[in-house]
Design a binder for these strands. Structure first.
Lengths: 109, 109
DNA sequence: CTCATAGTTCGAATAATATCGAATTAACGT
DNA sequence: ACGTTAATTCGATATTATTCGAACTATGAG
């Protein structure tokens, strides 16, 4: 599911394995407006750096939110040069919680 | 959607209208293990009193959790005699957030 | 009317989160 | 090496939640 090819690039961050995904933690991570917005943008954009997604918010705040999202298994972050590229762990999420991500992302207003 | 017939029975509790449902609030309400369990039991049982769903937990704690669930629009509570009967606001939820409740309830482990 | 039952509300203690500046780390360009 | 950029970690503060006993409310039974 996760690409072992990229493992070395993702070393600095803990990306939990499927077996450690917890539904409550995923729902909690998505219950914050800032984090939900991050997920929506990543859904549209495919991938984005942290800087592209702050809405003028301090980096340290954003970093915190990204960590919550990573810990929940929603986002994976890989170092590419000096920036951190984030993307959704779509396949992993759909494998562990079928339909959940798509259903939440399909909600509007 | 909500039955006006029952309005008088539900007076003591504020049940938000569809227009006030907020996705983040719903996700937050479900991110607590106790509350998620309540929702799962209500899904199985159809309806239940508060007392039937406490797992030996204090009444005041349960009352708090039910309030969070009501405020999010997940649960409706009506006074019937001396007990409070709770049930899922299935139709309202499916109307406002199509598929969300079912998708979350279909997750296991 | 009195008592018991079912839940709520209040209040206080504890715990968990959020926010953000400052210091830190890492990788790149020159 | 040095400076720059990108983002994390640290630490402090503030906000918000959780928990639960005690007091309160409402309903029904006797």
């Amino acid at each position: 599911m996760s690409k072992s090819v990229y493992d070395s690039l993702m070393r600095p961050f803990k990306h939990p394995p499927l077996s450690e995904f917890v539904l409550e933690r995923v729902l909690y991570a998505l219950s914050d407006p800032v984090r939900l917005e991050i997920i929506r943008r990543l859904d549209e954009m495919g991938e984005a750096s942290c800087g592209e997604l702050d809405g003028g918010r301090p980096k340290s705040s954003m970093s915190h939110h990204f960590r919550v999202l990573r810990d929940a298994g929603l986002v994976q972050t890989q170092n590419v040069g000096t920036t951190h590229m984030n993307s959704l762990r779509r396949d992993d999420l759909n494998n562990r919680f079928p339909g959940l991500l798509e259903t939440i992302l399909s909600q509007h207003d």
